[in-house]
């Protein structure tokens, strides 16, 4: 039975059915209580629920792997103990409620400051990369350097307040060159994604669908 569900044909059939269930109501002019729309919404919900179960399985799998590490006293097993303890604690806290109590406290007092600090570290990497990358190595790099220079000056709010003339120039670079590049990315990425999606629907992307071993 499991072999049947794991077969390439069944997986592709589910894939195509799911695709059509979202694709058709998006394009057709049908009311929200139309059976096709209702089916589509139900399918999306089923996908969400299945996702949640898969996540539960993934947590279970992490836990099992962690236990195996600890039993073997493999390198870094202490961290696995820490991880499993954290999982158990968070599960217990979660049962006490998400909106108050220890779960809430962990999110506010531990996760959020750590997350914010890590994000802010990004500024150091960005500054260092920017400072090293802008070199007038040739005519094109010089143009880029001058543009970058103007945009950086414009981005600092004080500059615009002292030299208002920088504002239209900075806006011009942003609204023409940067936007043109942004549009180019959007178009090329979208087309690339659609073509990739069609290949997936045709079952041609064997490795990402988990059929890599069948190929050869």
């Amino acid at each position: 039975m499991s072999a049947f569900f794991r077969s390439k044909e069944i997986q592709l059939a589910i894939l195509i059915l799911s695709f059509l269930a979202v694709f058709i109501p998006y394009f057709l002019n049908i009311p929200s209580d139309h059976p096709l729309n209702v089916f589509s919404t139900k399918l999306i919900l089923i996908a969400g629920i299945t996702n949640a179960f898969t996540l539960a399985l993934a947590v279970y799998s992490q836990f099992r792997r962690g236990l195996s590490f600890v039993r073997r006293r493999a390198r870094g097993y202490i961290f696995k103990i820490y991880m499993m303890t954290a999982i158990i604690l968070m599960l217990i806290f979660w049962t006490m409620g998400e909106t108050t109590g220890p779960y809430h406290w962990v999110m506010y007092a531990i996760i959020t400051p750590l997350s914010s600090v890590n994000y802010s570290i990004l500024v150091f990497y960005m500054a260092s990369t920017g400072a090293r990358a802008f070199r007038a190595r040739n005519a094109k790099a010089l143009l880029l350097l001058i543009t970058g220079f103007v945009v950086l000056l414009y981005q600092a709010p004080l500059t615009g307040a002292i030299f208002p003339a920088i504002n239209p120039l900075g806006l011009y670079f942003g609204n023409t060159f940067a936007m043109a590049a942004g549009r180019m990315f959007l178009i090329s990425v979208t087309v690339g994604a659609i073509v990739f999606g069609v290949r997936v629907l045709m079952g041609k992307e064997t490795q990402v669908l988990g059929f890599g071993s069948e190929k050869e």
């Binding site: 979202v22 109501p25 209702v38 919900l45």
Partner: peptide, 14 residues
């Protein structure tokens, strides 16, 4: 994205 799509189609269904 599926959840976003669901709320756009039928909010109270999602």
């Amino acid at each position: 994205e599926a959840a976003v799509a669901a709320t756009a189609q039928d909010f109270h269904g999602a």
